[in-house]
Design a protein around this nucleic acid. Structure first.
Length: 292
DNA sequence: GATCCGTGGCT
DNA sequence: TAGCCAAGGAT
């Protein structure tokens, strides 16, 4: 097995997209915010929100000084608003534990709210230039096809980190490029549907291609139907609160015509439980500053 | 380890 | 058109 590093590096040099977080000197905070936003939200939707966010809150301490509700409002329609709450908590943790500086060590990053195996290593590698395997859904698909000969990766697993580590050159800078290149290849060439194998720098050594593109059992979990779901109800309630912000709304005025009143009330309760909303005295609002 | 969590574009 | 999919993480 020749290894993926050399062709990935050469390809990335001429095919990489020009993205904001790849600009020289973008900064660790910008990288961290971008990675939060990119968790399950496509690049094209993230870019304008990222720039607005960093203009409003140029440092972790700036965000930490605002209320969680302000973060949720600024998050707008990026989806999964818990990420806004977690990003705000992470900013508070960075201010309180790390003197306002995004930490560099993976262990310290993993200890922050909302940061897991992917985001911790992405920050350590792309912001600080350290050598770790960075594995996202794109990388897992590239490895599944090129190395394992499978059409689709299995569910995410810790062993994916080991598989990617085996592909990294010893050189620190080259290792970072290989991480970025594997993600980029999965994003724009080795895509989930209709991959562009004629443009792939790994075509000559791809195990899946060599095997004749066999269908493999797709063990990924299917997403639940959104229409009519509790998630849809939560999203609708939160949209009401965002649109009214910074004003609270009367509880009785929250989606009075929602088709399933019990589901609506369940959504409100779960949002309160999650810390995305506060209810008292017959009103509902986004979370304010914690009492001090 | 299985489930849950938003939103919108693409095929 | 209705699913499929998207730089995951917490519980």
């Amino acid at each position: 097995m020749p290894g993926l590093a050399a062709p990935l590096i050469a390809w990335y040099g001429q095919a990489a997209r020009d993205l904001p977080w790849r600009r020289e000197g973008f900064g660790a905070w910008g990288t961290l915010v971008s990675e939060f936003m990119l968790q399950q939200t496509p690049v094209a939707r993230v870019i304008p929100h990222l720039e607005a966010w960093l203009t409003r809150w140029p440092t972790p301490s700036d965000l930490a000084a605002s209320s969680p509700g302000d973060a949720v409002t600024q998050w707008a329609n990026l989806g999964y608003p818990r990420r806004a709450l977690w990003l705000h908590r992470a900013a508070v943790e960075i201010r309180d534990r790390h003197d306002g500086v995004v930490p560099r060590e993976v262990e310290a990053l993993l200890a922050l709210t909302g940061i897991g195996d992917y985001t911790a290593r992405a920050v350590a590698v792309f912001a600080y230039g350290d050598r770790h395997p960075v594995v996202d859904t794109n990388t897992r698909r590239v490895l599944a096809r090129a190395v394992d000969g499978a059409a689709q990766p299995g569910p995410p697993h810790r062993r994916d980190l080991v598989a990617m580590a085996a592909e990294l050159p010893d050189d620190v800078a080259e290792a970072a490029v290989v991480n970025a290149a594997a993600m980029e290849l999965g994003a724009i060439v080795c895509t989930a549907r209709s991959p562009k194998c004629e443009l792939c720098p790994l075509a000559g050594q791809c195990a899946w291609r060599a095997a004749g593109y066999p269908e493999s059992e797709d063990r990924r979990r299917k997403q639940a139907t959104y229409e009519g779901s509790d998630r849809q109800a939560r999203g609708a309630v939160l949209r009401v609160l965002r649109d009214a912000a910074p004003c609270p709304v009367q509880l009785v005025a929250v989606l009075p015509d929602w088709p399933d009143a019990a589901q609506r009330d369940r959504a409100i309760d779960s949002l309160v439980t999650d810390g995305l909303a506060e209810a008292f005295d017959g009103i509902l609002r986004l979370p304010g500053h914690p009492a001090s």
